[in-house]
């Protein structure tokens, strides 16, 4: 960065004189910081010691890390999270557009939907979907589809509908705030060019709204990964937590398997956080003068600035 600044400097800047002598002063001593650090480290040591001496069979964790049942559960967790999130996203955009439309009926319907699905626990919703056969024995969508409800409402379907429809209510509020964050002048400019409502939304408004939409959506997705564990208890969907705790019960390594599940959840959320970083970077195009560096670029920049130390400072 420093190098490119030098190159692009205007031609009439005076040539750099001799480097000014760096200030050598005795820094302020922060005794409080030292004390705080020691206390925190001591507490941390106690905690580690407690876990190290606890009756935990740590070997069980790597032993079962790639157990086929665990991996199946893991796959199901990812599958249901991705699909429910996709359902929530699509339906959320529809609900947000309905909510913002001038039509009072669509706007009210969207409002009621959000009111209901945000206002009741997702666990209750999952239970309701799973037990739908009790009140509707048959599903009848006219000529398209008809079947016994108990055949249709598999654990997978119940989990998908329960998680996805709930998510749509949250997503629609996120999408709505994103759409509303886009300057009205944008819509006006698009309309003045002869673009239709739909095209203006798709080409102009939504891409800009994404900057506001993506960060909370990342949160939602990480929440979804974890909330999907409710689907096991509510509708017998055999996801990660269920498969690990089943192993825990049959082997007696209950806590170890909970640790294993926690490890997998941490790995999943870490992977998706990285994905989110790149997605946010993608939608920051144009709104920032220069994009934030990727971790890889940061490493490279640090390395080059390290070797260029003597030719100018490192800018914090």
């Amino acid at each position: 960065m420093t190098a490119s600044l030098k190159k692009s400097g205007p031609a009439d800047t005076p040539p750099p004189g001799p480097e000014p002598e760096a200030i050598k002063a005795i820094p302020v001593r922060h005794y409080g910081r030292w004390v705080a650090a020691v206390v925190v480290l001591a507490l941390l040591g106690l905690l580690v010691n407690a876990f190290a001496t606890a009756k935990i069979n740590y070997h069980a964790i790597p032993d079962f890390m790639f157990d086929s049942n665990v991996l199946t559960g893991l796959g199901k967790t990812v599958l249901i999270s991705v699909l429910a999130m996709a359902l929530g996203l699509v339906l959320g955009v529809v609900l947000a557009v309905m909510r913002l439309s001038k039509n009072p009926v669509t706007s009210a319907v969207s409002w009621v939907y959000i009111w209901f699905f945000r206002g009741t626990p997702v666990y209750v919703q999952l239970l309701l979907w799973f037990n739908l056969a009790l009140i509707f024995p048959y599903i009848n969508l006219g000529p398209i589809y008809r079947d016994e409800m108990s055949d249709f409402m598999t654990p997978f379907m119940a989990a998908l509908l329960g998680l996805g429809l709930n998510e749509a209510a949250y997503m629609s509020e996120i999408v709505r705030s994103g759409i509303q964050s886009v300057d009205e002048g944008q819509t006006e400019a698009a309309h003045a060019l002869g673009m239709s409502q739909g095209r203006t939304l798709r080409r102009i408004v939504l891409p800009q709204a994404m900057r506001v939409i993506v960060p909370p959506t990342g949160n939602e997705f990480i929440n979804m990964l974890k909330t999907s564990s409710l689907a096991a208890a509510a509708c017998q969907y055999l996801e990660l937590l269920r498969s690990t705790s089943d192993i825990g019960q049959s082997t007696g390594a209950t806590v170890e398997m909970l640790f294993l599940a926690a490890t997998w959840y941490l790995i999943l959320t870490s992977i998706f956080s990285i994905g989110q970083f790149y997605l946010e970077r993608h939608y920051a195009r144009g709104s920032l003068r220069s994009l934030p560096l990727t971790p890889w670029q940061k490493i490279k920049a640090n390395l080059t600035s390290f070797s260029n130390r003597q030719s100018g400072g490192v800018r914090a």
Partner: peptide
């Protein structure tokens, strides 16, 4: 209709005080 209004706007260019360029496009 909206589509007819949009069609008529094609022939009228407009330039705004605050530019209103689309910031996500070059």
């Amino acid at each position: 209709k909206d589509s007819e209004v949009a069609r008529n706007r094609r022939d009228i260019g407009m330039v705004f005080q605050r530019f209103n360029l689309f910031p996500h496009m070059t």
